[in-house]
Write a protein that binds this DNA or RNA. Structure first.
Length: 376
RNA sequence: GAGCCUGUAGCUUAAGGGUAAAGCGACAGUUUGUGGUGCUGUUAGAUCCCGGUUCGAAUCCGGUCUGGCUCC
């Protein structure tokens, strides 16, 4: 994997760049749709390619390990072959599931033990095993195993947790260096900055993370309930330390506003369940603002779902029809809203890139933040 | 024609003498490295109607009507 920095904004830290992988080139800043179990929920690969213009998607180590398992994935030639997706894939390590499945987990120096949410079976994830599983999956970008501490978090706990995350990162890097991909393409490894909302811990973690010299770097442990100001402060602090010649990935973020603000702070890559999960619950994001498509006011609104968009579903279906589909609990509602939201997210980062290159990102961003946060 | 049952929120059902509950629906809010239609809140009925018993009736009694079952 290679990263080429093309432009840096003069009024902010925003950057435009290219990430080159063996499965193709990604233009940054980029949003990566989440496809936890080898499927972006309710969205087909055809829609991802032709309607949404996704350049890279996510898979999840924890979920894919439990089902279908590494044996099936290896027989299929990796996740790319299995799901017939020939563009880049990034896999989360399962570190977040350690956090979100906290009631079943047990952390130790060796790794994390947990019981499966599917059949209750017990498993041990070590840093080495997590790299091995991601080798079986064949992700173009793999993530180290980390611990994502909850918010709020006592400083004492955050400090101990960060130490564990750092030692695990070294073990992941070692495993990555002593193994090779199974399918002939190269696989990068990204370490993850932690440290909760404590500036000194974040500084230490960012410096440590940078010192590992891996192909890219991630910022984790944010958007877990902390105030937005804290999230922006920590992101700014980390971006100031992480090397400029490697991509910066802010994990799990966020709203359209979050993306724009964090692009301005120097983030290159984002992923978030919000556009797909919220779509399934009737919320759509547009350049005019946020709409809840279940609201009664759309019952007789026969205008296009999103008149400003060139996406097929946005011109093809009316607001009234989409509201009807949601009220009738039709699967098509989830498909339309998910495709719409992902198309909007990809449109947003593509526009951001254009304005970074054109040199008017700051003014465009200010105007766009005001628009996308409106409640319609 | 006779006997029995039934009627409570828009719908399905609780409460069997002491200021009428719940689910669904409707209306709104929420959702940040996805445990696959989630979570939270609001709304709504003087209990079919008429009369009686009682300090007090959705509840007990009589009757009208509605819907259903059984028998001839």
């Amino acid at each position: 994997m290679e990263f080429h920095l093309q432009h840096t904004d003069s009024d902010s830290q925003a950057r435009a760049g290219l990430i080159k992988t063996d499965h193709g080139t990604i233009e940054t800043p980029i949003f990566m749709p989440v496809g936890t179990v080898g499927s972006v929920k309710s969205v087909s690969q055809q829609a991802l390619t032709h309607d949404i213009h996704a350049q890279i998607i996510l898979g999840n180590t924890y979920h894919l390990f439990l089902r279908p398992g590494t044996d099936i994935l290896e027989q299929a030639g990796g996740l790319h072959g299995f799901m017939h997706w020939d563009k880049p894939i990034l896999t989360d390590s399962g570190g977040y599931q350690v956090y979100s499945l906290a009631q079943n987990r047990k952390l130790s120096e060796e790794g994390v033990t947990f019981s499966s949410h599917i059949d209750g079976s017990h498993h041990l994830f070590t840093p080495e095993k997590v790299v091995d599983i991601q080798r079986s999956i064949g992700a173009d970008i793999m993530m180290v195993l980390d611990e994502c501490p909850p918010f709020p978090c006592e400083k004492k706990y955050a400090t101990g947790s960060l130490g564990l995350t750092e030692r695990w990162a070294i073990r992941c890097k070692n495993r990555w260096q002593e193994t090779e991909g199974l399918y002939g393409h190269s696989q990068a490894l990204f370490p993850i900055v932690q440290g909760s909302v404590y500036p000194d811990l974040r500084r230490r973690s960012a410096e440590f993370t940078a010192s590992l010299g891996l192909p890219g770097n991630a910022i984790g442990g944010l958007s877990v309930g902390e105030p937005h100001e804290s999230m922006y402060e920590m992101t700014e602090l980390c971006c100031g330390i992480l090397p400029a010649d490697k991509p910066r990935y802010l994990m799990g973020v966020g709203t359209p506003e979050n993306l724009l603000e964090c692009i301005a702070l120097g983030v290159d890559m984002f992923d978030c369940v919000m556009p797909t999960r919220n779509a399934r619950h009737g919320m759509i994001f547009t350049r005019e603002g946020i709409r809840n498509m279940k609201n009664a006011k759309y019952a007789d609104d026969f205008s296009p779902l999103d008149p400003d968009s060139d996406c097929l579903v946005d011109q093809y279906y009316s607001k009234a029809y989409v509201r009807h589909l949601f009220k009738a609990q039709e699967y098509l509602a989830l498909q339309i809203a998910s495709i719409h939201n992902l198309h909007f997210y990809l449109w947003l980062v593509t526009e951001a890139r254009k304005h970074i290159v054109a040199g008017d990102f700051a003014t465009w961003k200010k105007d766009m933040v005001e628009k996308v946060t409106r409640r319609l």
